[in-house]
Amino acid sequence: MSVINTVIKPFQASAFKDGKFIEVSEKDVLGKWAVFFFYPADFTFVCPTELGDVADHYDQFQKLGVEIYSVSTDTHFVHKAWHDSSETIGKIKYTMIGDPSGVITNNFEVMRPGVGLADRGTFIVDPDGVIQAVEITAEGIGRNAEDLLRKVKAAQYVRNHPGEVCPAKWNEGDATLAPSLDLVGKI
């Protein structure tokens, strides 16, 4: 079952952000753009490269009004320990959610059955809490924050310009399409 165009489900979780433990729920997400960035586990190999890449682009996401929530089935305590011990993870300013119960990971349908770890899943959520984009990759395939930024910009553009869509490889400032009968078979 696809979670595209569904509203995120309720959750309550402990997280690590800005040197503090905080509580986060779906209510904190509503009213702004959000990216949920699921990864298998702290203290691993591909995961820190991805989280560091997102950290390097966090200011750009913030300028777009987007909050980042990284999520793994580790606890918020493990997130803090990883943050304190890794130069790459130490630069993270966004919220690192602990999901040891697997509620959030299951809500987004990225829990590996029988393993207790999340797949590499990325979800773009609009201010209404509706999932607009999903990317799921296999264990060894890392994601790219620049492409994620491009997808967020496309999702925001489509939301702000009803009747227009963004074609393949669209980047901010590129031409869009206005679907119509006249375009059928001409693209």
Rank of each mutant, 00 (worst) to 15 (best):
E26P: 02
V29D: 09
V29I: 13
V29S: 05
G31R: 04
G31C: 08
K32H: 09
A34T: 00
F43D: 13
V46P: 02
P48V: 12
A55R: 11
A55M: 10
D56N: 13
H57F: 04
D59M: 09
V66M: 11
E67Q: 13
I68L: 11
I68K: 12
V71P: 05
T73R: 14
F77R: 09
W82S: 10
D84K: 05
S86R: 03
S86M: 10
E87C: 02
T88K: 15
T88W: 01
T88F: 03
K91T: 15
I92L: 11
K93D: 11
M96G: 04
M96C: 12
D99V: 06
S101G: 14
V103R: 12
I104R: 03
I104G: 03
N106Q: 15
E109P: 00
V115C: 01
G121Y: 04
F123V: 08
F123W: 06
P127R: 10
D128H: 07
I131M: 00
I131D: 00
Q132A: 02
V134F: 01
E135C: 10
E139F: 08
G140S: 09
G142M: 06
R143T: 03
N144Y: 07
A145P: 08
A155T: 08
Q156S: 11
V158M: 12
H161P: 00
E164P: 00
V165A: 15
C166M: 09
P167F: 15
A168N: 03
A168G: 05
